[in-house]
């Protein structure tokens, strides 16, 4: 069997009395879309923040591509091939869409102690940035300020910023957050196009999206992984249905 790209081993994160991540173990195989689902407060976003390096774990280990990255800060992890998107849109609101993405390209094109040359005319930054924008469907919107985009477009730019760093592992934190049914469907199509090129950890509430995209699913409840398996296995899992899926399926 192939080596996992990401291994999370008995990870623990406590906030005061609350254990947000409780001896959580998880393996992400290269090439898969690994969805992480769970009710609100299950610790999904906390998990993403720990994988991305924004939050320091209290115990346990995170290994990425064979390297222990548990103590690395976020920028260093980005340079090893990890990228994340944010549940609450987090862009450079006052910059243009193209500037946003070009900055992410620039972060991975050597140091930035270049003081005089016009970065906006730098083909090494602008060409890849435009290519990424085309991939997420924002090719026509490059010169618009990020703050002026519609919510759906901002969600696309969220993903463009992560993609522009050419990651090996993409952490998507609720990419469909706040989207209507139609926008969600389009986003699912886009992610389908991306999934052949990059390994994805997908945190999502939209079960249609999860079952449409995921190769494997891990169910989180109170910071613990109660089950991991293929979508059909998760659907059938009695424990999962009880803890989480049951009421949603009853509703649909």
């Amino acid at each position: 069997m192939a080596e996992p790209l990401l291994t999370i081993d008995r990870l623990v994160k406590r906030f005061g009395g609350l254990t947000a991540t409780d001896h959580l173990s998880l393996e992400v195989m290269p090439g898969e879309v690994h969805a992480v689902i769970g009710p609100n407060g299950a610790g999904k976003t906390t998990l993403i923040a720990q994988i991305a390096g924004e939050l320091r774990a209290d115990a346990g280990e995170i290994r990425f591509a064979g390297e222990d990255i548990t103590r690395l800060p976020a920028p260093a992890r980005s340079h090893r091939g990890l990228a994340r998107s944010f549940q609450v849109t987090s862009l450079f609101a006052d910059m243009t869409v193209e500037d946003n993405v070009a900055l992410a390209v620039q972060a991975h094109d050597g140091h930035s102690f270049r003081f005089l040359a016009d970065a906006r005319r730098d083909a090494r930054l602008r060409d890849p940035a435009r290519a990424v924008l085309a991939r997420v469907g924002l090719a026509e919107r490059g010169q618009v300020r990020a703050a002026a985009l519609s919510h759906g477009e901002q969600r696309q730019l969220e993903i463009a910023l992560a993609l522009a760093t050419r990651p090996r592992l993409l952490l998507l934190d609720e990419p469909m957050a706040g989207m209507g049914a139609e926008e969600s469907a389009r986003m699912i199509e886009r992610l389908r196009g991306i999934k052949s090129q990059v390994t994805i950890v997908l945190v999502e509430h939209d079960m249609d999206a999860v079952f449409a995209l995921a190769d494997r699913i891990t169910v989180l409840v109170y910071g613990r992984a109660i089950a991991t398996g293929r979508p059909d296995e998760i659907r059938r899992n009695a424990q999962v249905r009880e803890a989480y899926l049951g009421d949603e399926q009853a509703a649909s």
Binding site: G53, F92, S112, F115, L116, A117, D122
Partner: peptide, 26 residues
């Protein structure tokens, strides 16, 4: 020159959203 250079855009990015800067590798 500086505010439109690579260096300047990093400064602006850090002002605009330092958390995102860290996430994209700065």
């Amino acid at each position: 020159r500086m505010v439109n250079s690579r260096f300047g855009l990093v400064l602006r990015g850090a002002k605009s959203n330092d958390r995102r800067m860290a996430a994209i590798g700065f």
